[in-house]
């Protein structure tokens, strides 16, 4: 027998390794199945409803026919306004926390608050939105109230993801700047932000899909079952895709199922589209940077 011939134990170990590999692969594949199943079902049942008319017309006959255009427009309003509020606040807060603030008791309190805010269930955000924006500030049930509620919900995640992108910028870049006498703000403006913008944008855009999909926070604050006109300002009530889907599936009888599934398909399609855009942006900017 040669020195390098395999032994019985080595063969057994080899078999164990192969088995482990197959099991791990199997579990990973299982993860994909629900995604494929959901998408498959939506496409199978919802695709027949899709048409330009479905996308661009109003629902009619008690929502058992017609299209979903007001809901699409409403979702865009809600997402747009909420991001216009949460993105700047979130990014600036993250810049402060990561670049300026030291590790003191009050920054630790802020961190704790952010983590906890991220863990608050969306229905609780909704009740807060009703109490604070609809009633106390008297914004009424409106796009503004709903968007503010969504903004508060998305804020902690935007702060966390922005902070992560900022701290991924090597410390040596900052030192290089300070050493030619740049102030902290100049360092942030010229070096830190340009090198973290891809990550920041990705984090923000991923929150778009969350804002578009949530139903609870908007249900009492600004979204309506049916509004006969398109919103013209943030003070109007509006329809929204997620709300519309909830209404179709629980509140209205005799809805043809392809309308329900078609609405769901449009919502999911919108989210996938937005995520796709974020992936493209990220890979574009990543390819440009090298360090």
């Amino acid at each position: 027998m040669g020195v390098f011939a395999t032994s019985a134990t080595a063969r057994r170990r080899h078999r164990t390794q192969k088995l482990a590999f197959v099991v791990l692969l199997g579990v990973t594949v299982l993860l994909i199945l629900p995604v494929l199943a959901i998408l498959g079902m939506l496409v199978y049942r919802g695709a027949p409803a899709l048409s330009l008319e479905f996308l661009f017309s109003e629902p009619v006959r008690g929502m058992t026919a017609g299209g979903i255009w007001p809901a699409i427009v409403g979702t865009m309003w809600l997402v747009g306004v909420s991001l216009a509020i949460s993105a700047p606040i979130g990014v600036l807060a993250a810049v402060y926390l990561n670049e300026y603030a030291g590790d003191t008791w009050y920054t630790r309190v802020i961190h704790l608050a952010i983590v906890n805010l991220a863990g608050v269930p969306s229905i609780v955000h909704a009740l807060f939105g009703v109490g604070a924006f609809v009633l106390f500030f008297e914004f009424g049930t409106s796009i503004l109230s709903a968007s503010l509620t969504l903004a508060i919900m998305t804020l902690p995640v935007i702060i966390a993801s922005t902070k992560e992108s900022l701290s991924a910028v090597p410390m040596s870049f900052r030192e290089a700047c300070w050493n030619v006498g740049a102030t902290r703000w100049q360092t942030i403006r010229h070096v830190v932000l340009p090198n973290s913008i891809a990550g920041i944008l990705t984090g923000v855009i991923l929150q778009v899909s969350r804002a578009a999909g949530e139903t609870a926070p908007i249900i009492f604050t600004g979204a309506a079952v049916f509004v006969p006109f398109l919103p013209s300002s943030v003070n109007d009530q509006t329809m929204a895709l997620s709300m519309h889907l909830f209404t179709l599936s629980t509140q209205v009888q005799n809805v043809p199922q392809e309308i329900t599934y078609g609405t769901a398909l449009v919502l999911v399609g919108l989210v996938v589209l937005i995520n796709g855009v974020s992936i493209v942006i990220r890979s574009r900017i990543r390819r440009r940077r090298k360090w």
Partner: peptide, 15 residues
């Protein structure tokens, strides 16, 4: 820092 410049262990050119 304008008058007193510093060079580090690892070269750190800005990107």
């Amino acid at each position: 820092r304008k008058r007193v410049g510093m060079v580090f262990q690892r070269p750190n050119p800005l990107p």
